[in-house]
């Protein structure tokens, strides 16, 4: 037959119900990922909307019984990469030694984690931390969001990103360093009190 005949309404109904049951409950986690990925609510909304529409259109391509959250996540990540690829940031030079030296100094004066954290990152606001996250390249950002913010295990993150666990580990290692550098710089640049004496 040349064309598949249109199927009856039951199929549409069934697809809709399945989608409501399996895909819609993951909306919050995807929204948070979109928010951390794009750094602002408007873009996050657009990305979320695009992801759900695509997911609905391709619902018959989702393998039933597999991880729906990871599937949705991959759609979102691909959409994001396609959309913002033009604005890919090249990692700038990062001077890890500066932070290390600074930390070495303050560590000699204190062992209290809260105190050290405060001296390192000052009084950065939540928004500034969110901006620092969007400032690191996507491959590292995604892994930091998944593991450090969402609290996924390496195994779960590996399924989401579709890469080996070793890759998650090394991206996380690098991602934390990059992020730490951003936070430290922000804390200094913005003139927050960072005590080094």
């Amino acid at each position: 037959m040349l064309f598949a005949l249109p199927k009856n309404n039951n199929n549409t109904q069934q697809k809709h119900e399945e989608f409501q049951r399996e895909a819609v409950p993951h909306m919050d986690i995807l929204y948070n990922y979109a928010l951390r990925l794009t750094g602002n609510p408007e873009d996050a909304n657009d990305l979320l909307q695009e992801t759900y529409l695509k997911a609905y259109r391709f619902w018959d391509k989702f393998e039933k019984g597999t991880n729906c959250r990871a599937w949705l996540f991959r759609i979102m990540r691909n959409s994001y990469i396609n959309r913002y690829r033009k604005a890919v940031k090249t990692p700038e030079h990062v001077d890890y030694d500066e932070i290390k030296e600074f930390y070495n100094t303050i560590r000699e004066q204190s062992t209290d984690a809260n105190d050290l954290s405060e001296r390192l990152f000052g009084q950065l606001l939540d928004d500034q931390v969110a901006t620092a996250i969007t400032d690191i390249p996507e491959e590292f950002r995604t892994v930091v969001i998944l593991c450090d913010i969402e609290g996924f295990t390496y195994e779960e993150a590996a399924e989401f990103v579709d890469c080996p666990i070793g890759t998650i580990r090394s991206r996380l290692h690098r991602g934390r360093k990059l992020l730490r550098d951003k936070l430290f710089k922000y804390a200094h640049e913005r003139g927050y009190e960072v005590k080094d004496k």
Partner: peptide, 20 residues
């Protein structure tokens, strides 16, 4: 320690949002 501090700091600053 720097990694631990970074991880903890980010976690306390970024809160979970619900979809508007």
């Amino acid at each position: 320690e720097l990694d631990v501090l970074t991880k903890d700091f980010v976690k306390t600053k970024i809160s979970r949002q619900t979809t508007p």
